[in-house]
Simulated assay, not measured.
Amino acid sequence: MTDCDFLVVGHGIAGATLAYVLRQRGHRVLVYDPGQANSASNVAAGLMNPVAGKRFALTWRGAELLPFAAAFYRELEQRYEQSFFSETPIFKLFSSLEEQNAVLARSADHPWGDFVAGFDTTDPGLPGTHAPFGGAWLQHGGHVAVRELLAALAVEGTRAGWLRRETFDWAQLATSSDGAVYAGQVRARHVICCEGAAAVRNPYFHWLPLTPNQGEVLDVECPGLSSAQVLNRGAYVVPVGGTRFRVGATYRWPPFADGITAVAREELAARLSVITELSFAIVGQQAGVRPAVRDRRPLLGPHPTVPALSFCGGYGSKGVMLAPRLAVLLADWLDGHADIWPDVSLQRYNTLQSVGVA
């Protein structure tokens, strides 16, 4: 029998950060993950954007989450002697004079703290970029090489034995008031589900209001396009090295196709053509399924009736920004040092569990 303090199911950005935090605190952690190359975390461009959406609003808890995430990823860079996090300016292109005027009018109230570094009211002349109405310069954001980060953690986990590349079978989990036993072989004090969108099929958590959302991205070669910043107008354009960029992302609600689609390819290519008049070559396309939540807030905390189980996920398209702080929050709760924030707690949906609503 293998004994551990915490059994984490899933090694995407949610499970990987949580497992790391728990291990750093000296807990015995065992992680199960099948290692899918097209998981949402592996496909993601890892963008951390402080101001997003058509309303040009500061992202939820951005003043706390962004600096916390940046410090967390820099710590991992030092540990693994690899580069994962790029604190890169984001240039949000205005689509019209009306949008420019609306944003500038709002800026008088300073609603974005120090995340907006300034505005251009005319084309700033970025190489290869078509920005006739100017745009806003965002700071303290950037992007994370999520696939490389998860790979570095997985190499250590495989070598040290705390990561098992297996599909977890929830039917073989037996729970009690003081813990859980899996497949008659692993005994854990607590089990945390970090399965992402796959949790919609979880027998313990299927009632949560998770809605899978498919996103597709393109990898393009675009010589001459400025790589000194992330570009954002209807799509993000993230520099990933040399003349290569990742362009994304689409949002598709069920039902959606299994894998990449020609529709998404054409949509993203059209969006990129609005940002640049340069020619580009599509060299890759990927699709992943995000775990979106009805109220656009993460899901965190204990199962309402099974004390040995907790949930960590529902991060949608903001996983790299949310994961570090929420991993620490859940670890603090598991250690008995903090309460789960009400706006992310599973308790806000407990009535769904009691009536069996998915």
Rank of each mutant, 00 (worst) to 15 (best):
R265G: 11
T243P: 00
A235T: 15
S279G: 15
E75W: 00
T261W: 07
S177V: 07
I260G: 01
N42M: 10
V217R: 05
W333Q: 10
V21S: 10
P111G: 03
D343I: 09
L153Y: 07
F84S: 02
T88R: 15
H140W: 13
T59R: 12
V43T: 08
L299Q: 06
P298E: 04
S310K: 03
Y73N: 05
D339R: 15
D335T: 01
A198P: 00
A338P: 12
G12C: 02
L268Q: 09
F311Q: 03
A37I: 06
T88E: 11
G35D: 00
K54H: 14
R159H: 14
V220C: 08
Y204A: 11
R79M: 06
S41R: 03
V237E: 06
P111N: 05
H190C: 12
F94T: 00
V200Q: 10
L173W: 12
V181W: 00
D5P: 04
G134S: 06
A105V: 00
A108K: 14
H11R: 03
V191G: 03
R244L: 13
A327T: 04
K54F: 08
G242F: 02
R187C: 10
L97M: 05
V355N: 04
V29L: 06
F6R: 05
V220P: 08
Y32L: 11
G259P: 11
G128E: 04
Q24W: 00
P239S: 07
Y73R: 07
C193A: 15
V320R: 01
D114K: 13
L334K: 06
H206V: 01
G336Q: 12
D335K: 01
P111M: 08
G234M: 09
Y73I: 09
V306I: 13
Q78F: 03
I90C: 12
L65A: 02
A269Y: 10
A136G: 12
A102K: 15
H337Q: 15
V144R: 07
G46E: 02
D109G: 07
E267R: 14
T121W: 09
A160W: 02
R61Y: 11
L346Q: 05
S176T: 14
A37C: 00
E99K: 14
G241H: 11
I13C: 02
T276I: 09
V191Q: 02
Q36K: 12
V289W: 04
A323R: 09
V344L: 07
V357M: 13
A262H: 11
R233W: 12
F85T: 01
A198Y: 01
F72N: 07
